[in-house]
Amino acid sequence: MKEIEITSGRMNPGIDPVLHAWGWEIPVYLFIGGLVAGILFFSALFFLRGKTEQYPTTVKRAPLLTPIFLAIGLFALFLDLTHKLYFWRLYTTIRLESPMSWGAWTLLIIFPLSVIWSATWFKEIFPEWNWKWSFLNRLDDWFTAYRKVLAWSLIFLSIILGMYTGILLSAFNARPFWNTSILGPLFLVSGLSTGAAAIMLMSKNKAERQIMSKIDISLIGIEIFLIIHLFMGFLASIEVHVQAAELFLGGPYTAVFWTFVFTLGLVVPLIAELLEWRGYHIPVKVPAFLVLIGGLVLRFIVVDAGQTSRWLYKFMQ
């Protein structure tokens, strides 16, 4: 028998009985971060491959949403802070050991970059558009001339953004469920997949939807592979990791994860996209919508499950 009790009482709000440091704000931000990374990545990639006119939604239109999405995500992050007026302290230091620090700096660069990248497409999307002040028009021309540089920076930064949303969590060895290097690539691939899904929802061009759908098929395949690997890794590891995996293999997250993330968010859209590829008529909105919901639910579950997995005081759950 082993019985542990905290006899003095310990009920620190947000910590006991189960850690609840991060609520809805963090998973919403992680989802938006991945989605924006995906949209910007494909936009820059297809631009560099010279497919701007072939796939106009991917390259020109979808990025217009990214500054708005990022603003919502950043606002969610701001809401999560408990010492809000000091947020600027993020930008008085660079701490390479802290993923949150370099995430904050990446956001500081990628946010204006997403605004500039979208702005350079404005005149092509809305032919009547005119930036009222002449210096803005000159600036637009200048940035348009440097689109290639912008695109390469976006590819680089969007991969960091997508990856960091996972590494942010995997760096915490105090929370066994997060403490796996699979989380970085998993969130990156999931982010690219939600980006592709968002483009599929927006595009009216059949060829464009088909290429995004094909890309999405391979991304979902990689995601399923990574999820299986994640659990294999946990089950082959130390006790706390085995217990973390058991949260999803019979534990409280089993039903919600395997139903909403694995089946409805990955397997069903994968089959739908494969069938569409083979010529069956399936509205593209169905798999795209499922992928987006699955990506959001994945982040909610991962953020929540990580906080319930711990080394000490398991009796308090």
Binding site: G14, I15, L19, A21, W22, D80, L81, T82, H83, K84, Y86, F87, R89, L90, S98, M100, A171, F172, N173, A174, R175, G306, Q307
Partner: peptide, 9 residues
């Protein structure tokens, strides 16, 4: 800033 990274770590 109250980001709570230390709490989860």
């Amino acid at each position: 800033i109250g980001c709570k990274a230390c709490i989860t770590s």
